[in-house]
Design a protein around this nucleic acid. Sequence first.
DNA 1: ATAGGCGCCTGCTGGC
DNA 2: TGCCAGCAGGCGCCTA
Length: 293
Amino acid sequence: MPELPEVETVVRDLRPLLIGRRIRRVWVGRPALRTPWKAVWTRRLVDRRIETIRRRGKWIVVELDDGQRLVVHLGMTGQLTGTPAAAPIEDHTHRIFDLDDASIQLRFRDVRRFGGLALFADEKSLAGFFVSSGLGPEPFGLDPYYWRRRLGSAKRCLKAVLLDQTVAAGVGNIYADEALFEARLHPGRIAAALSAAEAGRLRRAVETVLNRAIERRGSSIRNYVGGSGLRGEMQNEFRVYSRTGQPCPRCGAPIERLRLAGRSSHFCPACQKSCQLSAISRRPGGRQRMADS
DNA sequence: ATAGGCGCCTGCTGGC
DNA sequence: TGCCAGCAGGCGCCTA
């Protein structure tokens, strides 16, 4: 569910609620999420103070005063919220952290249980985890040469490349579709076949779309809420995602849906041509790298 | 080595 | 009203 803008919103919401607070008690409901909870983690968290909260890709990193790092992934339906302790505990709440401010709790809730939490001993072991999982750079201010190299070596379609967290961390299904629309590129085009100009357009489109979504506090389709329990607003401004059959906001053609890389992909068949004929005609002597058709 | 497919879970929606 | 198929923001494992 939550992609970079949603996770960023959670982090920004949680900071004023949690920084400086000390964890007093950890309640573990269902231990077996995607990452099983280790009993020692409970002991290691008690009496630790929360120093900072940050985001890396779709991961939330809570830094504790003794150097430990509590990391949270929201999967598809995860919610990490600072909630009034008096509020009723909703179904599918799997972790509750009591704080020294007894009026508020940090709660983790996840209907589908694709998310999870883990505790790392220090920054170094957390960094090692991110490296070993191949987590790519943040999608802001990407080095254009890195971007072109990653696209140029990929024989798969653009949609698959955008979803690949080792290329850039944080883009998911919604914002991949929205970025491809913004860049006027067909999701099924082969990444290696892009011209330099097209690659640059896509790189900038990803930033544009993510920034716009952060300003709107992310997209709430069903489960997503920010760290204070508030829904996002970006779902009202989708140009293509979940708009199959509705008119393209640019040209009015009906939006189409296609299954790519195992995910549904939404695009405008008129604005996002699978063959960019104009790009080819501008390079008469160049290699015809039309790997898609 | 890469890339695609499937499974993990639960809940909701739409068609019959 | 009920049943069932299909679908959903992610990701890791398996296979070809």
